Amino acid sequence: MNIEISEVANLPSKFGDFKVKAFKEGQKEHLVIYSDNLAEVPTVRVHSECLTGDAIGSLKCDCRDQLEYALKLASSSDGMVIYLRQEGRNIGLLNKINAYALQDKGLNTIEANHQLGFRTDERTYEIVTYILHHFGVKKIKLLTNNPDKINSISDIEIVERVPIIMDSNKYNIDYLNVKKDEMGHLL
């Protein structure tokens, strides 16, 4: 892996005071947001970018709620959020919006991705192990509902899976049910 790594910078936020470091993997630049006093066994959230949810507050998903919860938890428990630049399950923003348009016509999130020629989920997580090794982390509490994340982290002991359950709404209930029923998410 050819990875460029930034310097460390301070990031005061409404969720707490953090340190940040960027990791450039090819054309993707990932961000690690972490407590200055990282716990020996930190709670870690691996969060894939969701511009519509994270930045704009879309109600079609639970991404922003999960990110905010993870940042609050990272601040209070000396943990870490690894923000991966994998928009729209790694199909990119343009294709994500095209998938949204197909969903507006009645397809679910998986059917829309397939209609566009993509697998159900195109994300990868190899960089996560690299990042955790970089920080000297050997054990984590993984904040996730996604079994793919659990199964993809190698050489790091996951001592606990911490569920991250957000309230549903009328716009995301079908999306959440698809994640649970068809993608095996632990909801």
Rank of each mutant, 00 (worst) to 15 (best):
M1C: 12
I3W: 13
I3H: 11
I5E: 12
S6C: 11
S6N: 15
N10W: 03
K14R: 15
V20L: 06
K21W: 09
K21Q: 15
F23T: 05
G26P: 07
G26Y: 05
E29N: 11
H30Y: 06
L31M: 10
L38E: 06
A39I: 00
E40D: 05
V41M: 00
V46L: 05
S48R: 06
E49Y: 08
C50W: 02
C50L: 04
L51Q: 04
T52S: 14
T52E: 00
A55P: 14
L59C: 10
L59K: 13
K60M: 05
C61M: 04
D62C: 01
D62T: 00
D62M: 00
D62K: 01
D65F: 07
Q66H: 06
Q66K: 03
L67C: 02
A70P: 01
K72N: 08
L73Y: 02
L73C: 03
S75F: 01
S77F: 03
I82S: 03
Y83Q: 02
L84I: 05
R85P: 12
E87L: 14
G88T: 11
G92E: 06
G92P: 04
L94Q: 10
N95P: 02
N95F: 08
I97P: 08
I97S: 03
I97K: 07
A99P: 10
T109L: 12
E111Q: 13
N113K: 07
H114S: 06
H114N: 13
Q115L: 10
Q115C: 06
L116S: 12
R119I: 00
T120N: 12
D121C: 06
E122M: 09
R123Y: 03
R123G: 01
Y125W: 07
I127W: 08
L132T: 01
L132P: 03
H134S: 12
F135H: 04
F135R: 01
V137W: 00
K138V: 00
K141L: 04
N145R: 15
N146C: 08
D148V: 14
N151E: 13
I153E: 00
S154P: 07
D155I: 03
D155C: 01
D155R: 11
D155E: 14
E157G: 04
V159W: 10
V159F: 06
V162D: 02
P163N: 09
P163D: 13
D174Q: 15
K179T: 07
K180N: 10
D181Q: 15
G184L: 09
G184R: 06
H185E: 12
H185G: 11
L186G: 03
